[in-house]
Amino acid sequence: MSGAGAASRGSREPGPPGRVARLLLAPLVAWAIAFAVLPTAMLVACSFGRRGTLGGVEPGFSLAAWGRLLDPTVRVVLGRSVAWAGLATIACLVLAVPAAWTIARSAPRRRAWLLAAVVVPFWTSFLVRAYAWVTILKGEGLLNGALLAAGLVSAPIEMLYTPGAVLLGLVHTFLPFAILPVYATAEALDPALVEAASDLGAGPVRTFREVVLPLLGPGIAAAALLVFVPALGLYALNDVLGGGRVDMIGNLVADQFTGAARDWPFGAALSVALLLAFAVAWRLAGRGGSLAASLER
């Protein structure tokens, strides 16, 4: 786009927001201040406080909570959480991309049904779905019953309370978050590009790899973020499907507030550190992304 051409056509530059615009923005800004900025500020303040006897924070300044972040436990738990959330993200994407592509390319009527099939299970409470997996995976559960009846195994397999069960729960919980953004980009993709690729002699695999996948890039990136971030913080699945045996970072944070330790400053410091890590990663990813984009040009 050439700046001179745009100016000569008299297209409007975004000037300072008018009164109406500011009025319209006000609720959003107020919401952000009340429910994002203020709580985060309170969390930061809390992390520098002293542990109250009954929980809570006592006035005073202490770096003890931040010092405990260097505890090897935090490193191990955080590393494991990142690994599990990463695995769940990869699994979700591997399932979501073909699914989203198929949905986007199907006839409108069929597409509506397929989309409903993605979204409707999501309306059930996530804990109910987690307990449904317990019924399926437990020692005397549906799956073991079926395997035993079919004579495929001679004794029940240990499926529940394993890392695999937690991963399964994570993928099941977050799959719609992965399918929908990829679907949105896939639907907007011009089918003519795919046709052009086949006309020019690319097979289906090559077309998908070299044309479709790069064009789905933004959707896939959004999907990865929408799965990874909440998966990293989730801890309930770990208790229900994992037997609470292996702590994730979310468990560690929650234990400081609702567990026996009652150490709010440490819980707050953990949360703030996690928030900072996300912000830095986001910045770096943004830089990397724009760098890659400028290199391509």
Partner: peptide, 19 residues
């Protein structure tokens, strides 16, 4: 047990983490 609760929590979390 006052601050003993923090020590207990720390110890068990450390062992669970395998550290």
């Amino acid at each position: 047990v006052g601050t003993g609760a923090v020590l207990v929590d720390q110890l068990v979390a450390r062992i669970k983490a395998g550290g």
